[in-house]
Design a binder for these strands. Structure first.
Length: 429
RNA sequence: GUGACCGUAGUUCAAAGGUAGAGCCCCAGAUUGUGAUUCUGGUUGUUGCGGGUUCGAAUCCCGUCGGUCACCCCA
């Protein structure tokens, strides 16, 4: 047993986990580009003030922060939206609007780790800046839905919970509640399904409301509420509205959200949120001290809960298994049956690799049976045997268990031809 | 940051105050040019770490670190 362990809340990526991480990131990237988003990246560390002042209490309580050697207050980013706002406002005139950017990278939050929740996670961020309104939110929600579907997660497996903070502000106005209570009130709504009813009632009464009033308003807030009309029309036109459910209890903890807010949840396993986002029309102005007043919206999806869901969702497992196999398998294993042929084998290996064929082979003398076992273990499609027949070599299809003899001089062409044919059997890489 | 439960070989788990074990994995051989199965042999632990109680501690107590869960809230 090693004396050293990973730091609390951090994880090792052994090859299998690394393949999963890469599969998730690559899928995010492919779908985001399909939507016309371009990739950017921000620093992993930022001045602590950037988050302390802009993100709100929920995030600042779990900042992974420290002082550097020059005594500067530094924070490992808990999210990238403030960095994005800083970057976008700093050079906003360089980019045509709307700006559609995405980012994939690690984020850090100092909290108690448990399943689906570590201190380090990889996040996919998609944001649209310089354009506000239902079309922007619809584009982002659509991207979130298609991302889930690309993983093989279907409408039976996940739901978008959608709300709009403005409907609650309208409710407070209607009830003549002072605006200063808005933050407290939203916090109560956020917890209304988790907190004890009598405590909720007590808190509501303190600001001049009752649970009954709030419940009645929630019950009357459905997809026909005017606040969702444009969004509904847009997503219905795309054929995606069935993925959306109005849920007035979604308000989100981050302070900067202004109107539309949404979260992505799985439907079958009771996991934590897969993704969340909304519009944040005032953040750019805040970050730039009022110099750039640019509306914006975006969402973030994490890799940890998503990874758990993919492993548990039948529809997603096949794509996942295929991706993991592709990451660990090779095209052909070279069997050196006669050590005297090793130089010839190395020459062919070099040519095959130059042609892009994924090749492995034994470093030292090994029995042929062992070498075929190694080929099997490496999930190779073919074994290429260099032995007494040289300059002929034997190419064996390890799935079909058939073999042919080809001249060593043409092995590259022959193997490429065979690789181009569809693999028979379950080992489709 | 607070509370609850847990921590034994690479891994999954036994051993309930009396000498730390098994399956799997890994390595080698049976098998000197073909993948399975089977069989044989082999490597591995200051029982997370540090104290304490005891003739004796994996086992009981305290602390600490880590994991899981709840609070919190979400990626």
């Amino acid at each position: 047993m090693s004396t050293f362990r990973t730091v609390k809340g951090f994880r090792d990526f052994f090859p299998e986990e690394c393949a999963l991480r890469n599969y998730i990131a690559e899928t995010w990237r492919v779908v985001a580009r399909r939507y016309g988003f371009v990739e950017y990246e921000a620093p992993v560390v930022e001045s602590t003030d950037l988050f302390r002042k802009k993100s709100g209490n929920e995030i600042t309580a779990q900042l992974f922060c420290f002082r550097d050697k020059a005594d500067r207050e530094i924070t490992l980013r808990p999210e990238v939206t403030p960095s994005l706002a800083r970057m976008a406002t700093a050079r906003q005139r360089d980019f045509k609007k709307p700006i559609k950017w995405f980012q994939i990278g690690p984020c850090f939050r100092y909290e108690e780790p448990q399943e689906g929740r570590g201190r380090e996670f990889i996040q996919f961020n998609a944001d649209i800046l310089g354009d506000s309104g239902p079309a922007t939110a619809a584009e982002l929600i659509s991207l979130a839905i298609d991302t889930m579907r690309e993983f093989g997660v279907s409408a039976d497996d996940f739901i978008i919970r959608l709300s709009n903070r403005e409907i609650w502000h309208g409710f407070l106005t209607e009830k003549n509640i002072a605006a200063e209570h808005a933050t407290t009130f939203l916090s109560i709504i956020d917890k209304i399904e988790r907190a004890k009813p009598d405590e909720t009632e007590k808190k509501l009464v303190e600001i001049g409301l009752t649970t009954a009033e709030v419940r009645a308003f929630m019950a009357s807030t459905d997809e026909n509420h005017p606040a969702f009309a444009d969004l509904k029309a847009n997503l219905t036109a795309r054929g995606l509205w069935q993925h959306v459910r109005i849920d007035a209890t979604i308000v989100r903890g981050l302070a900067y959200y202004t109107s539309v807010v949404f979260e992505v949840f799985d439907l079958k396993h009771g996991l934590r949120a897969l993704a969340g986002g909304g519009t944040y029309d005032k953040l750019c102005a805040l970050i730039s001290d009022g110099n750039v007043d640019m509306p914006a919206a975006g969402f973030a999806m994490g890799d940890v809960v998503l990874g758990i869901l993919l492993k548990r969702t039948p529809g997603a497992q096949m794509k996942l298994t295929s991706a993991l196999l592709a990451a660990s398998s090779i095209d052909a294993f070279v069997v050196i049956a006669d050590e005297a042929q090793r130089p010839h084998a190395l020459a062919s290996i070099q040519q095959l690799r130059a042609a892009g064929v994924r090749i492995d082979y034994p470093f030292g003398s090994q029995k042929v049976g062992k070498q075929f076992q190694a080929a099997e273990d490496r999930k190779a499609r073919f074994a290429i045997v260099f032995g007494a027949e040289y300059p002929e070599v034997i190419v064996k299809n390890l799935i079909a268990r058939s073999q042919t003899s080809v001249p060593a001089a043409s092995v590259v062409d022959e193997v490429q031809k065979m690789l181009a044919e569809p693999a028979i059997g379950p080992l489709i890489a």
